[in-house]
Design a protein around this nucleic acid. Structure first.
Lengths: 242, 242
DNA sequence: CGCCGAGTTGATCAGGCTCAACAAATGTGG
DNA sequence: CCACATTTGTTGAGCCTGATCAACTCGGCG
């Protein structure tokens, strides 16, 4: 398992011996698909890293609406609120069989004191997530569903995509509802758009998995009919028309 | 200026002497209203803290759409991407006369090594911003404009609000366009809603400032007509109707 | 074989965006 | 201090994206 050292962002730049030592101190847990790693509202007392597999972080509002905040990929930190003794803000659910590492938060805090590099790694991770959220916020404010959907899929592709004979496959089930929750839309709307793309052979489904046959064409959705708009300062919302 | 020590989250928990020392090393800059602190895309080489005043962080898309990512309040860190030698992801614009402190990023990195507490402070700040973004994402996906607007205003109130004779005032100009960019809507829509609230005396305007006369009633917007929805699991979007 | 959750698809309707013309407020120079 | 220019806000009319509701299909499973 020593090769985790290379994957895990948290331990980057630490020197193999130290990293290995920290790894040994981690609590290791295997979680089956659809099982819950933690729940929103629970007190967060350890910092988590996904060693392998994939998980989704999501919130459910009292009204029943759901939002997928993020898909976690191997090597990423999640549950960092633990460092501040807060509560988990989201549910975390395994979407694959996966392996998770946990360190109790006080331990991590002392590690940070001894190896401040770890703190920088955490900061880097958080910073990246913040950027990601800013992007999504922009999309949600300005882009139509079709664009948001394309972008969400492209993102899944570059984060989790695996080349197969049929195209690039997302190696875990992504339901239409999931996609809807990811882009702030609804199942029927997503279904419609995807049906169209399926008809055009840009995507397909293989045993519960999403397969993107033609990434370039999906990406093109984002650029076609983006009005060059000669006017110096258009005001707002929906750059596309016609 | 030693009293900055108490306000500045970055320096929390450091001991007055150390904090004072760090403060001395900061580059201090005064910025006038509407001036730019930094621009999206610039290489970020120092970490900023707002000593006093207020600033907004915003992005402008090529299409001309704008998003206000955050209003920065005194004591907050902004421009932390510098720690990783990245680029500023947003523009930062002063909305008041304000004073900013800057530390070159390498300096901050060494400070972090000597005083890991600083790293925890940064992490705390980022974590809080992440939570905030998650909330906004949820709102944008699920709530109608009216709710988002109410929430945005309430947030401004609790972050910047100052009690005055007329009610609680936001101590800097917030245009309808700003509010629109904050909640992902458009100027005309915001204007309409606000006109209504103005007519009902919940808010007013005094010399370019927003004054919230009746916070409770604005807050009530969020709760009235939230359907109790007996059904165990409604699917999605817009909990409110009728 | 019948059930159940997930997906499809049609019909309908409304929130809120767009366009546009006008009114207020702020600022500028004489 | 007033006329004009510029920016910011107001308000009406119309339309379109995408949500909602609903009926039906499909694939998997006990």
């Amino acid at each position: 398992m020593a090769d985790d050292t290379e994957t895990i962002g948290l331990l980057a730049g630490l020197g193999p011996d130290i990293a290995a030592d920290l790894l040994k101190q981690a609590q290791r847990r295997t979680i089956r698909t659809d099982e819950v790693l933690f729940t929103a509202g629970q007190p967060a007392c350890s910092v988590h890293v996904l060693a392998c597999g994939a998980a989704k972080l999501m919130q459910t509002t009292p009204g029943g609406a759901r939002v997928i905040v993020k898909y976690v990929r191997p090597g990423e930190v999640f549950g960092s609120p633990a460092l501040l003794d807060k509560f988990y803000p989201t549910d975390a659910v395994a979407v694959t069989e996966c392996v998770e590492l946990q360190w109790p938060s006080e331990l991590v805090r002392t590690v940070i004191c001894r190896h401040p590099r770890v703190a920088l790694n955490v900061i880097g991770d958080l910073e990246a997530r913040l950027r990601e959220m800013e992007d999504r916020l922009r999309d949600l404010s300005n882009e139509p569903v079709e664009h948001r959907l394309a972008r969400a899929i492209l993102k899944l592709v570059e984060t989790f995509g695996q080349q197969t004979g049929e195209g690039i496959e997302i190696p875990f089930p992504v339901s239409r509802q999931d996609l809807a929750d990811l882009i702030g839309s609804t199942l029927p709307t997503v279904s419609r758009t995807l049906s169209a793309w399926e008809a055009q052979r840009q995507i397909r489904r293989a045993r519960r998995r999403l397969v993107i046959a033609d990434v370039a064409t999906v990406a093109r959705v984002l650029y076609e009919e983006t009005i060059p708009e000669p006017k110096p300062r258009r005001s707002h919302r929906r750059a596309a028309r016609r």
